[in-house]
Simulated assay, not measured.
Amino acid sequence: MAQIKLMDSMGEVVKDVERKFIKAGIGTVNNLAAVSRKNAQRNIEEKFTTRNKFTVNSVVYTKCDPNVQTLSEIKAEMGLLSKAGYMRLHETGGVKTAKTGANLIIPTTNARLGNNAYRVKEFYKYKNVRNNFFPRKLNGQPSRSKQALILATFYAAKNRGFVRVDNILYQVRKFRPAGGQLFSATPILNMKHKSAFLPDRPWMKPAIERAENLTQKIFNQQMDKLK
């Protein structure tokens, strides 16, 4: 036998409907925040080359307070942890400047094995390269002399090392002590610039917009649960 819930007044009916709207609203924004986060994480994985899961896992969301009393209080948030703040510049585009005032270290395509979609090879990362490149001041030679460059190139070729010339770090592959080209080398890291312009590569806005298209569907599902 079906049970019929009787209301004492229209005021009670309105309050019951409002309670359901609030509850459904909370469920809706929570779902939208979760979907937005998932979309954003997928965008990062598809658009960017990351070394690990740190950046992806830095996209987080906060659920709505379940005890809100009015529709205007309903909100959930999706955002980025401060430690991954560098992703904000990718979202909007803009000028990237080295924090220390030194020049930026920009990997070349060669450092990514010929494809910018690839990660920088571990061997070519500056933290590993810096202990294996030869300055142009060796054996007492002046730092800018041709003789110092020849010596640095010789040692670099012998040890699979690197030389820094005009703030470009080269991996030396062949050394020719006399005649023709002095050495054969491949540019690995560009350290010429204190700043560089990054074009925008939106990953958050498209994630939110895609989720927003589901708003009505999710709200209807939440209301159905309350019937």
Rank of each mutant, 00 (worst) to 15 (best):
Q147T: 05
K63H: 12
A102H: 11
N57W: 09
M1I: 09
T108H: 12
M78Y: 04
N213Q: 15
G79S: 06
I208T: 05
S82P: 12
E18I: 12
A211V: 02
L198F: 12
K158F: 04
A98Q: 09
G140N: 09
L149G: 01
T186N: 10
V29F: 08
Q3V: 10
L198G: 01
P206C: 03
A211R: 05
K63G: 15
P66R: 01
L71K: 11
A34R: 15
R176L: 00
M223L: 12
V35R: 13
N159T: 02
S82C: 03
A148R: 04
T55I: 15
T70V: 10
L182W: 04
L169E: 06
I74K: 14
R144H: 08
R164V: 11
F162K: 07
S58R: 13
N52R: 02
A24L: 15
A211Y: 12
S145Q: 07
N31G: 10
K127F: 14
V13L: 12
K127V: 08
G27T: 14
Q222F: 07
V60L: 04
Y86W: 07
S184V: 06
N128Y: 01
D16R: 13
N39E: 07
F175Y: 08
N132I: 07
R144G: 13
P202N: 02
G101H: 05
N30I: 10
T28A: 10
R19G: 14
G94V: 00
Y170W: 11
E91A: 00
Y61H: 05
I22F: 07
A33D: 13
S184E: 14
K225M: 01
A178S: 07
Q171D: 02
G79N: 04
L169C: 09
Q147A: 12
K137W: 10
A84D: 06
G94D: 00
G140D: 14
F197A: 02
R19I: 04
R37E: 12
Y61P: 03
A84Y: 09
M223G: 08
N52H: 06
A156Y: 01
K83F: 10
K192L: 09
G140F: 09
F154H: 15
I188D: 12
V60M: 04
T153G: 13
I26V: 10
K227R: 02
S145M: 00
N39M: 02
I44W: 02
G161C: 03
K158G: 02
K99A: 08
R130E: 09
R144F: 14
I74F: 14
M191G: 15
L6E: 15
R164Y: 12
H90D: 03
T186P: 01
K125N: 00
I105D: 07
P187E: 09
I150T: 03
N139R: 09
K146Y: 05
L104R: 07
A40K: 04
V29A: 15
E91G: 00
Q3F: 08
N110K: 09
K174C: 00
E12L: 10
T92D: 01
K137T: 13
E46W: 01
